[in-house]
Design a protein around this nucleic acid. Structure first.
Lengths: 218, 218
DNA sequence: ATTACTACGTTACGAGTAT
DNA sequence: TATACTCGTAACGTAGTAA
């Protein structure tokens, strides 16, 4: 679909044209989308040829309605924008990992980055969760993730990953950390926060935790 | 903003460019929006001049990020589409009207239209509610409302209005009726259903009722 | 009042190419 | 590899106007 069509489809839909015929002159439509009557006429012709709208002539005037295809195309754009702008939730089951999270997070190389890039000093200990239901976590990481760089401390190498600032259980501001490399399955992520989450939220293994990733352009 | 810019902004945002700089070549961007490298280059220049994006050069390559203005413009489009595609809720307080609703709805002129246009035979009696919180009800009526025509029966004239098919309290399929003319204040609407709502939902005056208008292109 | 054609200036597109 | 010129062609936008 041509980009040019979008405002026309939007305006017709706003008048109810997604579900029924609406009376709408080429002049009024053009004015609504900031174009001339002539341009609106041409564009309507093209949209009709493309199967995006149907037109019914009533004497000299006309009625318009989006076709299923027209609705679908507009809805696709809506869903794409939703992915960008709406809040996302991640639900996961709490389990006890190998306990190495605590060791990692207490490393200065990580602590400094969390403080600078996300804004809190992580409690030395992480919460492992297995993701149950979520829009693709890696896609979220791409959208909202902050790069946490790997580093070398002494003779050890610590891998990097992506941290998504998020609201934990509606009460604590923290982050979901997705390591670039892990020995866990890919649906396992770590939840980091400035406090001991197990204590603060009274969590035990098997509990379900909900993490919200709000929309926030930093 | 030019319509032409939308897909470019969308793609940059999908890569996380709403909140941080993302590396993105003109070739890759052009490919993503189905344009040539040259076109992507020109459009980026225009969007920059329009204050929609910032660019940072890193040697021969570049990094992109939406400006606040760029995010705002895209978000405006998102909110417009939300109005069209998301479900809407109307919350209202139940009160006892003059009882004329029952008389009206039992008129064949109305009953036939409800059966044909919405799909149920209205229980002879309506529920008056005062709208507490809602996106503009009249705007909703414009989007989703079905025209109910006025008619004459005997020596009386019955006025028309708009009926919005809706889900009542999450349990009953009914409609919100918005008369074209009324002696009630404009925030008063009538809820119609195939059953006695007061009984079925155990409602009394002062109770709050939630009506959901789902998105459904008929 | 409509819709839509023609004519023509402006803008978009992309192959070729410079850097 | 990049980005971004030039320039020929296609598409867009609208005043004028027919119907």
């Amino acid at each position: 679909m041509k980009d040019e069509f979008v405002p026309y489809l939007v305006h017709i839909a706003r008048l109810g044209g997604a579900s029924r015929l609406v009376a709408l002159s080429t002049r009024a439509l053009g004015q609504a989308v900031n174009r001339s009557q002539q341009t609106a006429s041409r564009v309507l012709g093209q949209m009709q040829k493309n199967g995006l709208i149907v037109r019914r002539k009533r004497g000299r005037t006309q009625e318009l309605k989006l076709t299923e295809k027209g609705v679908r195309e507009l809805r696709t754009l809506y869903l794409t924008l939703s992915d960008i702008f709406k809040s996302h939730t991640i639900e996961g089951k709490v389990f006890t990992g190998l306990g190495e999270g605590a060791y990692y997070v207490s490393q200065d190389g990580y602590r400094r980055q969390f403080k600078e890039k996300i804004g809190f000093d992580p409690y030395p200990g992480t919460l492992n969760i297995t993701v149950i239901r979520s829009e693709d976590v890696r896609q979220l990481a791409q959208l909202y993730g902050v790069e946490i760089e790997g580093f070398v401390a002494g003779s050890r190498t610590f891998g990097g990953g992506k941290a998504i600032p998020a609201n934990i259980a509606g009460r604590v501001f923290g982050a979901v950390f997705i390591p670039d490399r892990t020995h866990y399955p890919p649906d396992v992520v770590e939840v980091v926060a400035p406090v001991n989450l197990r204590q603060a939220l009274m969590l035990k293994d098997g509990d379900t935790l909900t993490v919200t990733v709000p929309y926030f352009p930093a």
